[in-house]
Design a protein around this nucleic acid. Structure first.
Lengths: 214, 214, 214, 214
DNA sequence: TATGAATGAGTATTCATTCAT
DNA sequence: AATGAATGAATACTCATTCAT
């Protein structure tokens, strides 16, 4: 009897998770295309193939959705960084290779940058959202800052500015460059970022004694 | 100049220009605070002390207003750059000083960055707006690119990437860093930008023969 | 020339007042029929022949409309009372006749009672509305109380309870009885009220020395 | 009585009845607080500690719930009256004492009056509900009318109007007065009602021969 | 019996825009 | 040129109700 028939393909929990995933994907596309204010709950729900009510069964409000998108976005950003860090850990100076890959990926993902900016703009407008944004953002910057610090340490150099500030600057550059959609074949954001990184290396003095992290 | 009675202190044209100016100022504040989509024509008009009708006597549509803001914004950006260029022209290597001033100003003007991003985002969404945006933007980048080129030339160095691309990268960094409002005393965007610039200089090779502009 | 042509039948102000009047009338009917919660802004606007937007050009919110209805309702209630008071003033003891007329009118106006109750219920639910309601209600009760006082005074009798309390009781009875719609020809609310009034008279003691009002 | 295992403390029927009771109590509070239209099924179910589905396992529809509340409400009203009648039956003229107690209870029970009015208003709006309401209401009025009749009979007096009409008037007064929440220490609804009753007695003529009920 | 995700119709309110004044 | 009442479409969100689990 195998304790009863398997009643349906998806359990309830699975099915709900799937609904939520589809809503999130549709929302992400909509926010990128029309901005948070311009993306309507109706459009998002319809694009996902659900009613508006389904949206509100899965998210408390439109802003709650943005928080979910924020979490997702930061997870992805963390994954990207994780890959770079892995390489850095394994191959000494060849971090450059990892950075190259990361930079290349940035090029191709305008949407990802648009979403990042949309989140940041909203954080500057909604006190409520700002709180969540800040914590997640800080963690992320710290992580990238650590990477930068280790990178300079590996080269035996002292970073020319606090690593987490350098991290912020790199992220700003990456986001901003991605926005310039009109890059008719040009605008190799990744390359450009590497150029700046090499510059920092060239101008860095020898490492001070112990401290390597910010 | 005195054909007829002088009806009022301000001629008709002057008075209309004043109305327009007040509307633009109110609009700018509103767009920064709430985004373009979030700023309502009613709010803008009321903040300027006029009716909604007055708005439509001065602008064809809400998007037309954004075009006016774009023009204004680019004028200001040009002015800022102009000052830097003037210094560069006069004092050879001491452009650094001008850049310093420019960078310092960036620190204090979050609103200006917010508006710049809002314009850029809208350009990525409205084909109509994008066209206007692109031309004005291209001119601006060209100008900053020229400055960068001349800067490296003055130092007898070859820029490590096409100057207008470096210009884009610097603008992206400036805008993005300004957005991080939570800079509790830290986040000296201007300084950071200079650090990167010095890096580029340090990594630059000797000047190639002729070409200096992109 | 009669200073120019009369451009239109209704001046702007007149036309707006007319719009408001029509909206109020439609709202009144809707609130009576379906209750305040049940009456939708859309239905009200459509019944009045306008768009929903027109509603919001004339009222700040749905509750603001109810305040307008409250004012209107209380004006009418005051008018009814005014008529009774006039008679009372003119004809000594024959106030009874005026009361009779008033009572008779109550019979025929279920809607008026329904609206009164709807207002009272909403006052018990919205703190905001309650404030306005209370003042207008107090004034009204005072007025009816004065009438009751003068009535007993005219008969040389002492009211068996504070006049404004008696007033409240009469109003409660009038409203409540009107609600029993199923009065198949029976339920002569007015008559019944007079019966109670006569009872009070019969049980009243002789007037005390000076004071006649509450 | 012991066919099979005793599965749980409460039998199925008992447990269901308990669920229903909790739903009814929550519904009653919600309807009083926000009106029938304003009370949502979700809120009611949640307040009772159940899901919305549980609601629909116990009631056919939202209106069906109101019918259940009606029945409950009328039962209570009957109980109150029953107490008065008991006293009247036992102690001849001292019904007054019972009435006094009844009147006092009215004072303290605004909720009960709010619910009563909500039911009555809904009866005036839903034909379906009206039918049920009318029968239950008629029975109730009859009962109170009988009491009034017996009361006058006990005093050897003729009621100055058909007893069931007097009953309606008293109920209207009781409900309406209870609504005036702002009774800052004043508004002794019960007392006031007794004043009116005494008035009726004072104005009543001697009993006619037989008939005592309406 | 009880759950709660999902529905589809509904809610109040806001919007950019028009146009008679 | 400026007013602001009115429009019609859109907005975020709520509702009573259903139904697979």
């Amino acid at each position: 009897m195998d304790h009863g028939v398997k009643r349906s393909r998806l359990s309830r929990a699975e099915s709900q998770a799937a609904t939520r995933e589809r809503l999130l994907a549709a929302a992400r596309a909509a926010v990128v295309r029309q901005g948070f204010a311009g993306a309507s709950v109706r459009d998002i729900a319809e694009a996902a193939g659900f009613s508006q009510g389904a949206f509100y069964s899965n998210f408390e409000s439109k802003e709650d959705l943005l928080l979910a998108l924020l979490a997702q976005h930061m997870d992805e950003e963390a994954d990207r960084l994780g890959a770079v860090i892995d390489i850095a850990e394994r191959q000494g100076q060849d971090v450059m290779l990892g950075l190259d890959a990361w930079a290349e990926e940035l090029n191709s993902d305008v949407d990802w940058s648009m979403l990042g900016l949309e989140l940041q703009l909203h954080a500057n407008r909604s006190a409520n959202f700002a709180e969540s944004y800040r914590t997640v953002r800080a963690k992320h910057r710290q992580r990238l800052g650590d990477l930068v610090a280790r990178f300079f340490a590996a080269l035996g150099l002292a970073p020319p500015a606090p690593p987490h500030q350098l991290a912020s600057a790199f992220m700003a550059m990456a986001h901003g460059l991605a926005l310039e959609r009109d890059h008719d074949a040009e605008a190799p954001a990744g390359r450009l970022i590497l150029t700046f990184l090499k510059g920092l290396i060239a101008s860095a003095g020898p490492q001070s004694h112990q401290d390597t992290t910010a």
